[in-house]
């Protein structure tokens, strides 16, 4: 990576501000600290496994999605940026700068949790990535689509927070429905998931995520929507 690329990344980080990366890292790091403290204080194996799964499949994706959606509408110089480059590319780069460190730290969380024997029931080596990456991609993509579609990070964070909590509260109803089960983000936390359900879920989550990213990209084809007004 050459110097101009580093300079560009540093510039984009300054435009984003400190809050989004800190928020994304707070969820995954805070969760890791909780699990480590529970391990150190002799928490039961069942509670440890549950906490590790909740951090990886629940809190890390939620924090990253809330942080990523907040990047939308933060740029007072958006109009100037649009005169020189595709705004879609700039916005996706900024989201990447928020998501990539959070994803890396969540991967480290998974390695530490496995070493501490705090590991979601039934998960093997593939769980290092498969427990958290599909729900993170899914939730971040949906948050971006809502934030860009409504021009409102507030709406995005409120709706994905509600969706996240609704999935937690309505687990039995979701698990009983074939379509909703494929979009159930806490599958990595639940014990003894049938293999075919797991496979379908882990393919369907990123697939919908990719569709949401494409839709968000298409909406960014009209970047003038972000010029000259407060967020909705």
């Amino acid at each position: 990576m050459n110097r101009s690329t580093w300079a560009r990344l540093r510039l984009e980080l300054r435009v984003i501000g400190i809050a989004p990366p800190v928020t994304a890292l707070a969820a995954t790091l805070g969760g890791a600290i909780l699990v480590i403290v529970m391990h150190a204080t002799g928490a039961g194996a069942e509670h440890l496994d549950l906490a590790a799964g909740a951090v990886l499949a629940g809190f890390a994706p939620l924090g990253t999605a809330v942080a990523a959606s907040s990047v939308v509408g933060r740029d007072p110089g958006a109009e100037l940026v649009m005169t020189t480059t595709a705004y879609r590319r700039v916005l996706f780069l900024r989201v990447g700068l928020v998501v990539a460190p959070a994803a890396l730290v969540t991967l480290l969380d998974a390695v530490v949790f496995r070493a501490l024997n705090a590991w979601p029931v039934g998960q093997g080596t593939g769980g290092y990535v498969l427990v958290w990456a599909p729900p993170m991609l899914w939730l971040v993509a949906l948050a971006m689509l809502i934030a860009i579609g409504l021009r409102s990070p507030a709406a995005a964070s409120g709706l994905i927070g509600g969706l996240w909590l609704a999935q937690y509260l309505m687990t039995p109803a979701i698990r009983d429905n074939t379509v909703l089960r494929a979009q159930y983000m806490f599958m990595g936390v639940a014990a003894k998931v049938p293999a075919h359900e797991w496979t379908v879920n882990r393919i369907a989550l990123p697939a919908v995520g990719v569709v949401a990213v494409i839709a968000a990209g298409l909406l960014l084809g009209r970047p003038e929507r972000f010029v000259g007004s407060d967020t909705a």
């Binding site: 969820a27 809190f59 809330v66 942080a67 507030a154 927070g161």
Partner: peptide, 10 residues
């Protein structure tokens, strides 16, 4: 607001 929203959900 960003960190607050995450804290509120938590």
């Amino acid at each position: 607001p960003v960190l607050y929203r995450l804290g509120l959900f938590g």
